[in-house]
Structure formats: structure tokens, C-alpha cells
Simulated scan of single mutants.
Amino acid sequence: MKMLWSTSRYTVDDRAEAIRQTIRDRVAPVHITLPERPADVHCEVSITSIGRVQLTTALANPAIVERSARPAADDWEPCLFLGLQNAGSSTVVQDGRAATLRPGMLSFCDTRRPYTLLFDRGVDAHFFRIPVAELRLPDAVLREVTARALGGGDSAVELGASFLSRLAATPDLHTGPAAEHLAVTTLEMVRAVIADACDLEVAARAAREETLGPRILEYLRQHLTDRDLTPSAVARAHHISLRHLYAVLAQEGVSPGEWIRRQRLEGARQELAGAEAGRDAIAAVAHRWGFTDAARFGRSFKEAYGVSPREYRERPHEYRERSHES
């Protein structure tokens, strides 16, 4: 759900407190220092969620944003903020470092520790709030990249900045069928930026290993309809041994062969329930989803959903609830 907010709806004297409350309630519990003259206070904010990633775009007066030491009673989810400077400049301070950002540059700050954002000439930036748990990166890596000015020639960083800038500027992509996939892509892009920017080679290797499981799962999702998708092929694609593949996916609670079968069945079920389902033979649908034996597909489908593919295609609404419960 998208929220568009502006100080123009408030009286001049109420604007400062309105800004503080909106950011505190919707984005992060921070202290904001604003201009002393009420007439100098102005702000326009767009806040939207792309999966588990929150995107805030702000255009505002000069300000100082401070996050103090996290109190014991703070129930906010630990997050990493990725700032993308649109225009002007800003400064990020955290972990004993300070970084000045120019347009197109990126920076990180971690809500688990104090930080300060200085916008001497106003705010014109995008802020991506990402739960630390979603990144699945070691703390040593995250601490290494906070308060660093990223950009200016680093290939992965430049690619990440371009992707995030276009994503922020295209609100039609924030909702609808593509949003969930874009959220996954955004997380992967942020991980790539962090790994590329990290000075600790050992930590960078650890970061790549930490994200191997989610990357393999996303690879599986993208190649579900490939009939030659096998655990061995997946291992080769990621330059790891078959044993290591099974070990990594076991940490995700996944058995690759069974996971592929279930996801393919679900893809076939959704296609059979679609408006165009009657145009193709069931064997053709099964073939598209990687099943080479139509009879085996029928048995697996009935075992999973309690009805045959033909029965399901004829009355999908009747069996949908049963299918979801399976």
C-alpha cells in the first residue's frame, strides 16, 4: 500500500511535529532536527512496500536525522537502510566513519546502532528499508559497509544504483504480479552491492556463502519449466558439488528433488485453473512444467490435490480450497 504525504495539508505551526510523527510511526524511530522558523519547514514523502522492502522517497528542507542507541524496549525489527542520493549532497555517520554522498551514490546505515544523517541543503533521496533477517549476511559484513560512500566506478554498485533508481521512479512496479519478484531481485541486488563494496575478503566470501541458499532457490524458481532441471544441473550452475548443494538446501529445510516436484505441480495446477486451461491437452500442460510422463503427472497431481488434473480443470473453483489445504 502506498502512502503520499505532504506538509501542505497542515498549518505552518503544526508541520514540524507532523513530519516527526510520520517518520517515527511509518519509517523509523528517529529524532529529526528541523529549521527553527516554521515557515521553512516543508516535506513531501512517498512511502510504499515492495514485498518486505519499504521504499521511502523524501523531498524536504534541511534536516538532521539521528538514531540513538537502541533502547531495550524498542520492538522495531532490526533493519538496514540503503540511501540513494537523488540530488544535492548528504552525510552519513556511523561506526566511527562519515561519508559524503553525491547524486547517484549509495550508503548504508544499521538501525541496531546509533547513526546520524546530515542534510545541510535539504533532503532529496530514496531510502530502502530492508530487514536484516532478509539479507542473511554476517554482522561483520554489514558493519563493514555502513557509512561508506558507494559509487563512482564500482561495477556492482553502479548496477545496483541504476536498478534501485529505476525501481524507485516506476511506481507501477511496486504493486501487482511483478512486485514479489522485484522484492526478491532487490534483495539479491543489495547483497551483490554489499559483497562488492566489502573490504574484508573473508567476510565477502562468507556473505556469498550465506546467500547461497536463497540464490539457489531463486534459480530453481526461474528454471522450474526446464525439463533438464536436476540437482546435479543446479550444482553445476552454482559451481559447487552435489553434496554441498544438498547441505546448503538442508539448512533451508528443502530437499531439492521434492521441492522441484511440488513447485511444478503447483504451477501446473494454477495453469489448469486459468481461463485458457481448456485449450491445451493436460499432457501439454504437464510437459510445459517439466513432467515427461503424463500418467505419472496425473498420479502425482491426484496425490497432492485429491482430484485428477481433468477433474480439477473442469471445476477449479470447487477444488481450490481443497488444493490449498493439501
Rank of each mutant, 00 (worst) to 15 (best):
E134C: 00
A183Q: 11
A133P: 00
L135V: 08
P35R: 06
S46G: 08
A99C: 06
A149C: 13
S107E: 04
R313G: 02
I23F: 15
V157A: 13
S89C: 06
G298M: 04
S255I: 08
I240Q: 07
Q94I: 03
G51F: 09
R215G: 02
L245F: 00
R227G: 05
V234G: 02
V65M: 09
S323L: 02
I282F: 00
L159D: 08
S241K: 06
D280T: 06
L212A: 14
G278H: 14
M1E: 08
R112T: 14
S323G: 12
E134M: 01
F291D: 04
W76I: 00
L59E: 07
P256E: 08
L101W: 00
D13K: 13
L200V: 05
R70V: 14
A161H: 05
Q270T: 06
Q54T: 13
A283K: 06
P62A: 09
V65Y: 01
V92R: 02
T186H: 05
A295I: 03
A284I: 09
D13R: 15
P231V: 06
D293R: 13
K302E: 14
I260H: 01
T292K: 14
K2W: 02
F163A: 13
F291N: 08
R227C: 01
D139N: 05
L84W: 02
A197Q: 09
L245M: 03
Y246W: 06
R102C: 01
G290K: 01
D110R: 14
E209Q: 15
R313Y: 00
I194W: 08
A204Q: 15
R205V: 11
R52H: 10
T7W: 08
E266Q: 14
I216K: 13
A60P: 07
A207S: 15
Y312P: 04
A60N: 03
S155F: 00
A99L: 09
S155H: 13
I50W: 08
G88P: 05
E44N: 08
R269Q: 08
S6I: 01
S68G: 10
I194S: 05
A147C: 07
R322G: 04
S241P: 07
Q222S: 09
D110L: 14
S49K: 10
P256R: 10
G83R: 11
Y115M: 05
S6N: 04
S46N: 01
Q85F: 01
P29D: 14
A18M: 10
I47T: 02
T33F: 01
P71S: 03
Q94P: 04
P256T: 07
E266S: 07
E209G: 10
R279L: 12
P131G: 02
T56E: 09
A283V: 09
Q85T: 07
V254D: 02
